[in-house]
Design a protein around this nucleic acid. Sequence first.
DNA 1: CGGGTTTGACCAGCGC
DNA 2: GCGCTGGTCAAACCCG
Length: 268
Amino acid sequence: MDNGDGSSPADGAGLLPLFARSVKAEGLEEKLRRVQDENRRLAGTLGALLADHPHLRTLAKSPASAIAATTPSGSVANAAREEAVGVKVEVRSKIRTVSTRAEPSDSDANLIVEDGYQWRKYGQKVTRDNPYPRGYFRCAFAPSCPVKKKVQRNAEDTSMLVATYEGEHNHAQSLAEGSTCNESAGKAGSLPCSFFLNSSGQTITLDPVKQGPWSTMQPASRKVLTPDFQKLLVDEMVNSLKNDAEFMHALINAVANKMVENIPNYFS
DNA sequence: CGGGTTTGACCAGCGC
DNA sequence: GCGCTGGTCAAACCCG
């Protein structure tokens, strides 16, 4: 998570020295205002998302989401939100259709919908009702995995890629490099798997995959990892943290401890 | 050299 | 039965 100046909340270097606060405090207040604005904006987005996908309502446990859930939504709002996120998910039994916005520079042959799984292309076909070729993909992570994916550019809106998933994965999500964490965390299409904050013996483990919005989403929703969607997920995690009293308490303790540790150095 | 992609051929389902 | 279409196979090719 980037708070704007490249320092993390647990990064003591970004918070000290303690008595240079007059300038630092102003900067932090400005950041706080920006975060609050961002929070309000995301609350509206999340509200529309919840209206469309009831299975995501477990997210409403967080205060931010509770506020967002009261946001009125209609087809126009939904369309606007889908436009903002760049993703539309349609579920029909075990066949799921995912529309995602593609870069205009993407060639037709490069029908890549980043979804966290590894795929092997086994065919390509030009269909009757669409001049753009349809790519056929099989899940390459597990040979026995029955899931297939078809990806085709939308004939009416060529900036959209339509991916159709058939079946369900019988293995864990492989993410970008066949791994869910560690070295893959900084790569495109992956998420940091966990974050530790140790303060006065307190350790909070945050795992977006197991605990965050990621955990409550249906497989079809979890498949999409467009940059906008990644940002939405990360922002939701940030909102959850800001409203987590336990986390804030631990964070304050950690910052205070760091300050105490560095005060002797400051005066030396 | 191994693994992934490309692409023409082949197969199955469906409508006429 | 025939033609059309979508889906799959597999050899050839490409690339790191």
